[in-house]
């Protein structure tokens, strides 16, 4: 058998990005409902943020009664909703990575490099975060538009066309925040799990 032994130890081959993307995609697809719950956490956070931003934009555009008191209250609401969405997104991602420590340990036993593990989780998180944020931003804005339309009637449309740029920017901001938070929240636990000795990762029970 000695002839079969390789001389010395060579370096590990880097896994191509396409394989990492495929693994991340399969993982989301197979764990569909679990992924949906993670996505729902992100979705709700971003939808809430967007609804508050939308209200602010329309109230400002209508102008009537948008005094300092209302503005201060709206700003507070934006800050609060940002906090709520941050907690929602971070919590969802932390949970979804933490429950897979064993899987990370196993992958390392099979010869995965730390960075591959992190890469797969980041692709997965980025994908989930982006999709959930897009849907959250659109639904949040749309739902609040409906509420404001019912409340203000015809005045709403004028206000909307006046604030259309701001509304679009808000949607963009929501998508970026959701995606970036999802990536950041996945990076830390994935990196920590990948760095641990495999034995420790395998021992963790969830």
């Amino acid at each position: 058998m000695a002839s079969k032994q390789e001389a010395g130890i060579r370096r590990q081959i880097e896994l191509p990005l396409s394989q990492a993307v495929k693994m991340a995609r399969d993982s989301i697809r197979v764990r569909f409902w679990r992924s949906m719950i993670t996505a729902a956490g992100i979705f709700l956070g971003i939808a809430f943020l967007e609804s508050v931003l939308m209200t602010s934009a329309i109230l400002k555009s209508i102008g009537d009664g948008y005094d300092d008191v209302v503005r201060t209250r709206q700003n507070w609401l934006v800050v609060m909703s940002l906090l709520v969405s941050t907690v929602g997104v971070v919590n969802s991602m932390l949970m979804s990575v933490n429950e897979r420590y064993r899987e990370i340990g196993t992958m390392k036993c099979l010869g995965a490099l730390d960075r591959l593990v992190v890469k797969v989780f980041l692709i997965e998180a980025g994908f989930t975060g982006f999709l959930a944020s897009v849907v959250g931003a659109i639904v949040g804005t749309g739902a609040m538009a409906l509420v404001l339309w019912v409340r203000f009637g015809g005045k709403f449309w004028g206000a909307l066309s006046g604030a259309s740029v701001e509304v679009l920017v808000n949607i963009g901001i929501g998508i970026v925040i959701g995606t970036v938070l999802a990536l950041m929240a996945a990076f830390y636990p994935a990196w920590r799990a990948a760095k641990m000795p495999p034995a420790a990762a395998l021992r963790s029970e969830f």
């Binding site: 390789e6 130890i9 060579r10 370096r11 590990q12 390392k108 036993c109 099979l110 010869g111 995965a112 490099l113 730390d114 495999p198």
Partner: peptide, 15 residues
């Protein structure tokens, strides 16, 4: 190093 260890786990040892 980390690369060589991964290589070893991948090719030399089965768990």
């Amino acid at each position: 190093d980390a690369f060589e260890l991964a290589w070893l786990r991948c090719r030399k040892i089965g768990y």
